[in-house]
């Protein structure tokens, strides 16, 4: 990370290496398609320049076969790269279910990361290596984007919606992370460092952060403080769906759709309970929009997630 002159970014995951491979292969193919044009044009400009004797007989004005072939062959070649790059994208959108989940909040102008054990850090992010890590992104104000060049990934953090990115870093080290979506005055200072560590170092780092009660533990407390338990606990008088085992399971909706109860679904349900009504239940829950802070919301979702997986 010294001021040395570099021409290629560091590579810290298998996916990043694959992106490099696509880029290099695509560059080679495109050069093969375009360099001949330049050479040909330079040659023509020299050979057929005005005042020079040259054979200019039978110039062509059209040729359907040539036209079609230089229309379709490059397109066909390019499609290979479309598929290759789309597969990488597909991989980016499908994290393994066992990934380590870290929550990230973007706000003007800092990143806040929260580990499953409750450890929080600002602008720096410590992750274990050789383990899939999923970063759940939300924004408290404007649109931000978490961008880690060494991993060749970025994803917007959007207010009011949950997004995520995931990676499996395979090389320990310090890498830069940025906000890549313009977010106001100090946009360029909304940057930090990603520390990819040996798993045992990561454990040690977590421990050194002090034993904070886990997010889910804090969420359990909030669950009763906000009065959720009054209706959603077993044995309550109000008929509300039980939340045990909810996370990750399919939920049938009133309008016939079936959705998966994921992080964004649960968040939406807490903030705007009137939408996505659940089949077989009367909608009685009040909206918590504006009544609950984003970090509390994350904690409650973490709690619901924890009782969903047991």
């Amino acid at each position: 990370m010294k001021g040395a002159l570099v021409f290629w970014p560091p590579t810290a995951s298998a996916r990043a290496a694959e992106v490099d491979h696509v880029v290099i292969a695509f560059t080679v193919v495109l050069l093969c398609l375009t360099v001949p044009i330049f050479l040909f044009m330079t040659y023509c400009a020299w050979k057929y320049r005005a005042g020079r004797a040259a054979d200019r007989s039978h110039p062509q004005a059209r040729n359907l076969k040539i036209e079609l072939s230089w229309m379709l062959i490059p397109f066909g070649l390019a499609l290979i790269f479309f598929v290759w790059a789309a597969r990488i994208y597909d991989d980016e959108l499908h994290p393994p279910p066992n990934a380590l989940q870290i929550d990230a909040i973007g706000r003007q102008w800092m990143w806040k990361f929260q580990h499953p054990g409750g450890q929080a850090e600002i602008n720096d992010l410590h992750v274990p290596m050789n383990e899939p890590v999923r970063i759940n992104l939300i924004s408290q104000d404007v649109v931000h984007a978490l961008y880690i060049p060494a991993l060749r990934i970025q994803m917007d953090a959007i207010p009011g919606r949950a997004t995520f990115l995931w990676f499996d870093a395979d090389r320990a080290g310090k890498y830069r992370l940025y906000c890549s979506e313009f977010c106001g005055t100090d946009h360029s200072r909304m940057a930090g460092t990603l520390y990819v560590m040996e798993p045992k170092d990561y454990e040690a780092w977590l421990a050194a952060q002090g034993s904070v009660a886990g997010l889910a533990e804090q969420g359990r407390e909030l669950f009763s403080r906000f009065g959720c338990s009054g209706c959603h606990e077993r044995g309550s008088t109000v008929r509300a769906p039980s939340l045990a085992g909810l996370y990750g399971s399919p939920v049938p909706l009133e309008d016939g759709r079936i959705v998966t109860a994921d992080v964004s679904y649960i968040m939406d349900k807490i903030l705007y309970p009137d939408q996505n009504k659940i089949a077989g239940y009367k909608q009685k829950m009040p909206s918590f929009d504006g009544k609950i802070s984003d970090s509390d919301l994350l904690r409650i979702v973490a709690f619901i997630r924890s009782i969903g997986t047991t």
Partner: peptide, 15 residues
């Protein structure tokens, strides 16, 4: 074309 390729755009988008 690089920018239109999904996996590559993940890296070079907004840079």
């Amino acid at each position: 074309l690089f920018l239109a390729s999904l996996g590559i755009d993940a890296h070079v988008h907004d840079t």
